[in-house]
Design a protein around this nucleic acid. Structure first.
Length: 385
DNA sequence: CTGTAAGGTAAGGGTAATGTCTTGCT
DNA sequence: CAGCAAGACATTACCCTTACCTTACA
């Protein structure tokens, strides 16, 4: 019943240590502090806390010693949360006996008149760990009347260009002319229309890769920041003179260049041990649905070669390997995969699949260290400090 | 009158889904 | 060696958070 929040996956280390994979809960950090939970939920649902305020509350011990740190949830809304919100909204509608149209007015008030200030607080209560502002944005986005989505046609692009020329970056006005949501227009514009003449597509050249690496390290490590997280991709794209978009730069770095850099310039290979770690980590989360996974939290200091993005894709690939996974629950999928031989054997004893061709990240380390039968700790000994 | 909180809009930051070409098994 | 699944890599739609305002009102 309680939505699992702030779940912390088991560390790669603890997974590898316990050979049978059924390691104990040392890692299962309790969210608990039960008696302040209510107060937190109430605060999240009633106060429109800004980003800074939320951060501070989560960090500090709370001014009134009774309060432990505030715990609140970020990231994509899971399907469960979406359901909870949906029924909360429906409940609200029925309790006020409103029509669908009137309900719409509550979410998108035309004037100050019909405003019901209690509405947002009420539905936020249905997702206890979410700040009201997050619910506000999510609901307004997901119930937006303009439904046009999917691929952009050249004609639309043209209208968009025209509209931006007329109105500048006033996306709400642009929205009316293009017939797409304002923010979607913004996305299309900044990611594909702006600097289109300069844009380069296709394979990255060696020089480009070096250029990007240099820019990113200059912008992060050289300034004492973290190259895994603190990168400003808009700036990076600019420094690449607009040749590559922020999305291109980001993906190239996190999925390709960054792992190589960490692995002493060598492209790491995904190995059985990596699969093993991943599945057990996901298992340790004890969740019901994939959408509850916060991929950012899956890597750990001992096992950080792979970007959250890559891990997510790996998981999908593994799932697809399971017959009938579409009809399984999350737990069943996990168990199914756990049963599979290759995942259960962290040290690739008799696997015939691609052994020793290019180095597998995990195996590479396994060989350099002792020849014990025990699984060895994380692949990324060469990670930065 | 005025300081503060609600709430609307844009900028900033990130992920998920999909396409295409290559690699490597059986 | 064909046929096919998986991998590598690229593209783009889509989503969430934070910043910055305007406005209402205690």
């Amino acid at each position: 019943m309680p939505t699992p929040v702030g779940q912390i996956p088991a560390t790669s280390e603890s997974i590898l240590r316990s050979s049978d994979g059924s390691n104990e809960d040392e890692h299962r950090i309790a969210v608990s502090e039960g008696y302040t939970r209510e107060e937190h939920a109430h605060m999240l649902a009633t106060k429109w806390l800004s980003a800074g305020q939320l951060n501070q509350l989560a960090r500090s011990q709370g001014a009134l010693t009774i309060l432990s740190c505030l715990v609140y949830k970020k990231g994509k809304f899971s399907v469960i949360e979406e359901q909870q919100l949906g029924s909360a909204i429906e409940q609200y509608r029925l309790s006020k006996s409103l029509s669908e149209d009137q309900m719409y007015e509550v979410i998108f008030p035309k004037d100050e008149k019909g405003k019901d200030t209690a509405f947002w607080s009420e539905i936020t209560a249905a997702v206890p760990q979410r700040p009201i502002i997050a619910v506000y944005h999510h609901v307004r986005r997901s119930r937006h009347p303009v439904k046009q989505q999917g691929k952009w046609t050249p004609a639309e692009d043209l209208i968009l260009r025209q509209a931006v020329a007329n109105h500048g970056q006033s996306w709400e006005k642009v929205c009316l002319e293009v017939g797409r949501r304002g923010m979607d227009c913004r996305d299309r514009y900044r990611n594909h229309i702006q600097n289109r003449e300069l844009r380069v597509n296709g394979q990255w050249s060696k020089e480009e890769e070096e250029e990007l690496t240099k820019i990113v390290t200059d912008l992060t490590l050289k300034q004492g920041r973290d190259a895994d997280n603190d990168v400003f991709w808009g700036v990076v794209s600019q420094r690449m003179c607009g040749k590559r978009s922020r999305q291109q730069c980001r993906i190239k770095w996190t999925d390709c260049l960054n792992p190589s850099t960490k692995n002493a310039g060598q492209k790491p290979r995904w190995g059985n041990q990596d699969s093993y770690i991943l599945v057990h980590k996901l298992d340790s989360l004890q969740i019901f649905d994939d959408s509850e996974i916060d991929w950012k939290t899956i890597p750990d200091p001992q096992w950080n070669l792979w970007s959250p993005h890559i891990l997510q894709r790996r998981w999908l690939t593994m799932k697809r390997g399971v017959k009938g996974h579409e009809f399984m629950t999350h737990q069943a999928e996990i168990m199914e995969i756990l049963k599979a031989k290759k995942v259960n054997a962290p040290v690739t004893g008799g696997t015939r699949k691609r052994v020793g061709r290019k180095v597998t990240s995990a195996n590479a380390i396994a060989e350099t260290e002792t020849q014990s039968d025990m699984p060895v700790a994380g692949p990324s000994t060469s990670s930065k400090k």
